[in-house]
Simulated assay, not measured.
Amino acid sequence: MSENKHRLGVSETNLVVRHLKLAPQNLGQVGDAIKEIDNIYGLDGVSFDEKTQVFVAADRKLTQ
């Protein structure tokens, strides 16, 4: 049986990392945004760096 390192819909082959910059006025809702982003299908994980105000999300690359 294979051991999955990633969430459903994500494979190592198609993994990409995205950096999303927040607008300063939205900082009060970071926790809610993390929860919402983290529930997206195909997303492996999300984190937020308070110093740079950037979300880092790892997800599957969409292919045609």
Rank of each mutant, 00 (worst) to 15 (best):
M1G: 06
M1C: 04
M1Q: 04
S2R: 11
S2H: 09
S2D: 05
E3M: 07
N4Y: 08
N4H: 08
K5W: 13
K5P: 07
H6E: 13
H6V: 10
L8H: 11
L8C: 14
L8E: 13
V10W: 02
S11N: 14
S11H: 14
S11P: 14
S11F: 15
E12W: 04
E12H: 10
T13L: 02
T13R: 00
T13E: 02
N14Q: 04
N14E: 06
V16D: 00
V16Q: 01
V17S: 01
V17P: 00
H19G: 02
H19A: 04
H19I: 13
H19M: 07
H19V: 09
L20H: 07
K21H: 06
K21Y: 11
K21A: 07
L22E: 04
A23L: 12
A23R: 14
P24Y: 15
Q25N: 12
N26P: 02
L27C: 10
L27H: 08
G28L: 13
G28A: 13
Q29L: 08
Q29H: 10
Q29F: 07
V30G: 05
V30K: 06
D32C: 05
D32Y: 09
D32L: 12
A33F: 08
A33S: 04
K35P: 00
K35D: 11
I37V: 14
I37Y: 03
N39D: 14
N39C: 14
N39K: 15
Y41F: 13
G42H: 06
L43F: 09
D44E: 10
D44Y: 01
D44K: 01
D44I: 07
V46K: 03
F48T: 06
F48Q: 03
D49P: 02
K51Q: 11
K51I: 08
K51V: 10
T52K: 07
Q53K: 11
V54A: 06
V54F: 07
F55V: 08
V56C: 01
A57S: 03
A57W: 04
A58M: 15
R60T: 01
L62V: 04
L62Y: 03
T63D: 01
T63F: 00
T63V: 03
Q64D: 08
Q64S: 05
